[in-house]
Each structure stands twice: as C-alpha cells, then as structure tokens.
Nucleic acid binder design. Structure first.
Lengths: 129, 129
DNA sequence: CGGCATCCATAGCGATACTG
DNA sequence: CAGTATCGCTATGGATGCCG
C-alpha cells in the first residue's frame, strides 16, 4: 500500500457543507438581515433604521444577493412615496434556522463573549504597554 | 407621550449578542479552523493541509487572533524541525459550540445549499443570457 | 422612500520569497 | 516545519449626491 498513511486525514474543501454554508452567510450583515426578516415582512427603511451601522449601500447589496439566491422575495409597490417589501421565501426560512441557532446561542452565552473581549483587551494592553 | 410610536422597534446594535458573536466568527476561515481544532490538539502544517485554499498567511492570522482572544493556546517546541501545537482553551471550546451547530446543520441540510446554488446559477444565467 | 452611481480609503487575501 | 516580509490586486464598505 504505497502512499498509504494512517495520518491521511480527510480535507475540508470548498465542497464541505460547512464551507458552503459559510460562503453563504459568513459576513457582518447577512445573518442580521436574515434575522430581521424572520419576524415577518419588512421594508427597506425599517430594516435600515433597525440595524445601526448598516449603510444603505450594504443593505441593498445584501438584499440583492439574498434575492438572487432565492432566499428573499422583493415586492415593489408603485406608489408615492415608493414602498418595497421584503419577505423570506421558503428557502430563506430554511436558511434562517442555523442563523437563529447562532443568535440564540449568543444570547444565552453573553458571558463567553464578555470573556473573549476581556482577553483581547488584556492582550492589546500588554502589547501596547 | 410625545415621540411615542408603536412602530418604534428595538434596534439591533453592535452590542446585540448576535452581532458580537458574528464579529468574532463571521469570516471565511475562523469557524473552519475552530472546527478543526475541536477534535483535539493540532499542528500548523496539519491544519494547513487539511483546509485547501487557506494560505499560510491567513492561517497564521486566524490563529494569532484566536490566541489573542484567549480561544486557542499555542505551544512552541524548540526542536528541529520546529514543532508548534495548537489547542482550544476552555473558552475556545465554548465558542466552538455554535460553530459545531452550524456545521451539523450544514451537513443535515445539503439540499438547502444545493437549492441556493441552483437559484444563483439561474439568476446569473438569465442575467447573462 | 428606496434606491443607484461615484469616489475613495482601507482591509482582505493570494503569491512569492526568505528565515531560523 | 512554522512561520515572517513584502508586493499588489481586489473586494469591502463608508460618504456623498442624485433620481424617480
């Protein structure tokens, strides 16, 4: 068995489910937007106000991508003033599941987040000092 | 009650637990590295080979950050050839929980990932076509 | 209101080469 | 083996202004 090696471990390549999922949602805003939409139909301005720090440009970008990937449906009402509604598709609701898990974990484990921030602060102060 | 409005919804600001968690792990590689380390102590080269597409530079960067934030412990053995071991701290194991949830969900819902990819492919072809 | 276009600054990230 | 250093491109993302 030349080339055989017990140390040969399976690689985690780009087809690995976790990596495919991460390619989809692993950014600063997508999970938050998904989370916002989970509670029901929402509008551009509402979401924009609801997520401080998220620029219109980025919100648009995230929503366009979600729409393109079949996760969000966009309805434009041709009225004055303009009105656009966003709602999760069935697929979007499926993808929201792991995001919700993540959010729940975060809320239940704020102590971990605090501890991480403290570690970082200590590391940075000792490096600066 | 001037200024009171039933439409006033709570904002999801940067102190919201989910956003703090995302700031920590929402990138292409961190969750994968965390996942790799979950199975036990590992070495730089082993992880590098195990995750195709992850450059040495990025792996170093991710590991340094995890170390700084108290999630990973690094042990350098002064031997030739050099040897460095990485292992999750208790805090790191805590943070691994939601990552593991994510990975599990991804493996159980490959159909969703497939559907998303198909939606994207269709959107792109109709846009190009 | 719900965008899009533009500018611009920075961060991300791969490629390559070098070191102890 | 386990990095560090440098280059250079590209993507990210904020700011601003315009438009229907």
């Amino acid at each position: 068995m030349i080339g055989m090696d017990v140390e040969d471990e399976p690689t985690i390549d780009e087809l690995y489910p976790a990596r495919r999922l991460l390619d989809q949602i692993a950014d600063k805003w997508t999970p938050i937007v998904l989370f916002c939409l989970a509670s029901g139909t929402s509008r551009f301005g509402v979401m924009h106000r609801k997520i401080p720090g998220l620029s219109k440009k980025m919100l648009t970008q995230v929503l366009r991508r979600l729409e393109r990937d079949g996760l969000v449906h966009r309805t434009v009402f041709r009225v004055v003033p303009p009105k656009t509604e966003y709602v999760l598709t069935d697929l979007g609701r499926r993808l929201h599941e792991p995001v919700a898990q993540l959010c729940r974990w975060a809320e239940d484990n704020v102590d971990v987040l605090d501890a991480i921030e403290q570690s970082r602060a200590e590391a940075e102060s000792s490096e600066a000092g």
